[in-house]
């Protein structure tokens, strides 16, 4: 049996100190396991990235630009309609509020409540 010519190298390119203790070797093994984890994560991640890019490319190739533009137009119309509805709703609420405030019952109620509010401080700062 012959001794290996170089203890510092083997076929895997891993450097091993022949004088290392068991604990040091264990630590070296742990570092290698850790490195293996990182590499496997990279493989996993890169494979996933590649698949995701392929999926996006495929989706991009399938895009019907005209239908997208039509869809944008449709959404634009719906948005405008919604804004009109919102504005109408706001105007309606303002009218209702003004009607209530102009009513006799509001005036009477306000006249009763105002002195109490002045004492308790509630309602301060409100319009």
């Amino acid at each position: 049996m012959t001794e290996p010519a170089d203890h510092d190298a083997n076929v895997l390119g891993i450097r091993v100190d022949p004088d290392a203790s068991i604990d040091e070797l264990r630590e070296r093994c742990a570092e290698l396991i850790h490195e293996q984890l990182r590499l496997r994560d990279q493989i996993s991640g890169l494979t996933a990235e590649r698949d995701e890019l392929a999926r996006r490319m495929e989706a991009a190739a399938d895009v019907d630009h005209w239908s997208l533009i039509t869809r944008i137009d449709e959404l634009e119309v719906r948005l405008r309609q919604a804004n009109h509805l919102l504005a109408d709703e706001k105007a309606q609420r303002n009218r209702e509020r003004d009607e209530v405030k102009a009513s006799n019952s509001w005036r009477i109620g306000n006249a009763i409540v105002r002195p109490v509010s002045a004492i308790t401080g509630r309602g301060r700062g409100r319009a």
Binding site: I33, L37, R38, L39, R40, D41, I43, S44, G45
Partner: peptide
């Protein structure tokens, strides 16, 4: 499985 998937992404 932990080893196969490369554990947590650092």
């Amino acid at each position: 499985l932990y080893a196969e998937i490369g554990g947590m992404w650092e």
